[in-house]
């Protein structure tokens, strides 16, 4: 555990909590892509199956349970409790265009051809692109609520901090995992355009709206 890893985890946790609270307090999931949230629930489910097979630490187990629990709670709020506020017409990204290639890639490029390992690899690949339906939705509507942009910023920052964590681990532990690193780079790059808008607009007190 190093400082980048810890702040990355906390940033991830902050993102998840911000989104849950935003939906709960406003009693609305307007502007939130339910599809991205379903993808994140799939990501956590397929990655954390090792909860059933191995114990690493109390920190590890509790964070995994919190992430996966919050992911399903978010999906529940969007598709059941506040379904009436869900903006399905604008959430039109075709997720099969992500899941099918990512599934194929996980079968082809993995560390070992074992069920849990393939599912772990699938979750790493899927996480890297799971935000696309949300970004697509924002580009379609041309705007995002400020609280939604805070959520996206924390979520993007988390994987960027993990990149620094991997540099640290390579330098001090001689350890690296190419699958995680390449997917983490892709994931972070997808947020770059958003990071730019966040810094130039939201942090200056303006609402995030895209030019028509």
């Amino acid at each position: 555990m190093n400082v980048f890893r810890l702040t990355g985890d906390l940033s991830h946790l902050a993102a998840i909590i911000i989104l849950l609270l935003k939906i709960w307090k406003s009693r609305s999931c307007a502007g939130i892509s339910g599809k991205s949230q379903i993808l994140f629930a799939i990501v956590f489910t397929t990655r954390y199956l090792d909860l059933l097979t191995s114990f690493i630490s109390l920190y590890n187990t509790s964070m995994k349970l919190i992430y996966v629990g919050c992911a399903y709670a978010t999906v529940y709020l969007i598709y059941v409790k506040f379904r009436a506020t869900y903006d399905g017409n604008h959430d039109s990204f075709r997720v099969e265009f992500l899941i099918v290639p990512v599934g194929g890639l996980a079968v082809l490029i993995n560390h070992s051809f074992a069920p849990l390992e393939i599912l772990w690899t699938f979750s790493i690949y899927l996480e890297s692109v799971a935000i696309l339906p949300q970004l697509f939705m924002i580009s379609k509507t041309g705007e995002a609520e400020t609280i939604t942009t805070h959520y996206l910023f924390c979520l993007g920052l988390y994987r960027a901090l993990y990149l620094f964590n991997w540099v640290w681990r390579f330098y001090f532990e001689g350890f690296f995992d190419m699958i995680a690193i390449v997917a983490g780079l892709v994931q972070t790059v997808l947020y770059c355009d958003f990071f730019y808008l966040y810094v130039t607009k939201v942090l200056k007190g303006k609402k995030l709206s895209l030019p028509a």
């Binding site: 090792d50 690899t121 964590n165």
Partner: peptide
């Protein structure tokens, strides 16, 4: 992954 040291990561 399964036999990588990455398992402690989230």
């Amino acid at each position: 992954g399964t036999d990588s040291k990455l398992k402690d990561e989230l």
